[in-house]
Nucleic acid binder design. Sequence first.
RNA 1: GGCGCGGUAGCAAAGUGGUUAUGCAGCUGACUGCAACUCAGUCUACGCCGGUUCGAUUCCGACCCGCGCCUCCA
Length: 464
Amino acid sequence: MLKIYNSLSGEKESFKPLIEGHVHMYVCGMTVYDFCHIGHARVMVAFDVVSRYLRQKGYQLTYVRNITDVDDKIFKRARENDEPYDQLTQRFIEAMHEDEKALSVLPPDLEPRATAHMDQILEMVQTLIDKEYAYCAKNGDVYYRVDRFADYGKLSKKNLEDLRAGERISVEEAKENPLDFALWKAAKEGEAAWDSPWGRGRPGWHIECSAMSTSCLGHTFDIHGGGPDLKFPHHENEIAQSEAATGEDYVKTWMHAGAVRVDNEKMSKSLGNFFTIREVLQKYNPEVVRYFLITSHYRSHINYSEDNLRQAQQALERFYTALRRNPVVTGDVPSDSELLDEYKKRFAEAMDDDFNTPEALAVLFEIVREINKASVEAKSLIILLRELGAVLGLLQQNPEQFLQGYEQNQGITAEEVEVLIALRNQARADKDWAKADQVRDQLQVAGIVLDDGRGGTTWRRSAE
RNA sequence: GGCGCGGUAGCAAAGUGGUUAUGCAGCUGACUGCAACUCAGUCUACGCCGGUUCGAUUCCGACCCGCGCCUCCA
């Protein structure tokens, strides 16, 4: 039985979809005005694992992840670049797709964009005005009337008095209440704008997610996910909008990923410790990055550091070394073995426990040991390892490619390595150990580790 | 100030009221020309103080420390 920690209740709950066998999931995607950073990667990978596991469990899944392509930051960046805003967003959408593909993040089923859902947005704003949950202010903005929604704060466990006490925003006098938030913003000179009953303008940040999730998945759906900093105010406001508009529950299970830190500091542009996915991929194999992101539980904060990435690299070397020494095999996992069934069961138990990937990885390492122990026939274990690895989006590469191939690190070519190995093996045949060792040392300096196996010498590029 | 999260061995990271997490690193042995890989064994733990219990890292309470959100942010 799958259990998921629900941010709304603060507890792990047994998961039961509203429609038996079918899961509807919405995850807040990115605002496309810059390259994705590793915080985005963490959310992408976390929910990619969730989606893979739900499907593996046999659920039919509709996975929606939006793209925010209307936003102040987008307009600001477009102005700075002197570039049409929609050209800017298109560029970064393409970059995002490249990053995802590199990290083996499967595309969601639907990827709605705010600009393509204006009708639904306008409709929801109108409904909120009709129900008096929203009002059109003197400045042309439409605001949500926060104190009309009794449950406001139920997700982030805040109440209106506390929020008022911690008030730090400059007060917008057009608002009835400083905590009211914008559903629709009046157009500014030179910025993209859409027609509406309240004048030309553009949607506020929160309304698009309410409108798109509702139109893609219905009034109430199973899972809504996102980054840790979206819980308040973004998700809180989504609840307020959607539940006021539909009169029904918005989401059953809220999931929030943990934060990414860099060298134990909050990742931020002002600290200059901001890493984009593509920067990181300059240095590390994408699978290493993905592995690193799932070595912690998805709800824990995770610390990006050179040391941790190197450890991830070494851990994957163990997996691929085991896979390399055995012939490539494919097929279904035979279920005639108690041992195999036991591993499958323990993997499933780990994943059923709120997607406990560290525990699941521990099971995979035990399979590796078993493969390494089996001197002759490890075929079914290898098939199992790759099958379970696929649920985590790992271990699908050719072992040689992983161990030898990551181009970015190359200081020496594979051909040069082969030449030196041949040279060394001749020296070994001549029992000229000094020369053989000298060649091996030379390769080691270049980051190449040799392995004189029964079937000849193999090599790999090592993480230091 | 309000709300919330966490402190596990050298590093990373799960978990459990009593029995080996796991990976990397270290040490010993086997294997190897020597290594590497691998296997076997092994050393480093559960922030501090009380309480409950036959027994707590695991439950309860206090304390110390770190962090997040409350403002755009995944």
